[in-house]
Amino acid sequence: MMSADTNLKSRRQCAVPTRTIVGISELAVSTVGSGTLVTHSLGSCMGVSIHDPVAHVGGMLHAMMPLSAADPERARTKPGMYVDSGMTTLLERMFALGATKRNLVIRVAGGASNMDSDSVFRIGERNYTVLRKILWKNALFIQSEDVGGSKSRTMTLDLATGETTIKSNGVMRPL
C-alpha cells in the first residue's frame, strides 16, 4: 500500500526507471513521466490504466469489488478496494496533479469470470458494469479494453509513452 499510494514525484531524480507494483485493492498515481505502473493477477477484479499525455500524469487501479456501499468504513481507509470509490479517488488524485478530463486515455482490463466458478455472484461482470456507469457519469470514454473471459491478466502502463500492455497466458500484447 505504501509504495503504491506514494506520489512518485519525489523520485524524479532517480536514474533507474521505477516499476511500481499496484497491489490488489490499491491504486497509484505518478507524475514522474518515466517508469511503469504494474498490476498482477487481474481476475474478476477491474484494472484501470489512465494516462494524461499532456500533463504527464499516469494512474492505475486494481479494484476487487464493485460498490463501496458494501463496507463504507473499509472504503474510506482503502478506496482502491471498490470500483466506485477507487475510480473516484484515482480521478481526483490525477486531477489534483494537473490531469484534465479531455486528455485522459482510459484503458480497462479484467472483469473475468474465473474467480467465481459457480458464477453466482458474477463479480467480474458487476465490476465492469459499475466501472462503465462511473465513466458515463463522468462523461469519459474507454479507449480500449480487454475484459471478460476466464483468464488472469497483468497490466502495465508505461508512464513515458502512455502505452498499456496486457500479459495473459504468457502472451504480451498492447491494449
Binding site: 470514454f141 474507454i142 480500449s144 479494453e145 491494449l175
Partner: peptide, 9 residues
Amino acid sequence: MTNTTLEMT
C-alpha cells in the same frame, strides 16, 4: 465481452 480497441482521433 470480447477484446475491443476503440481508437479515438
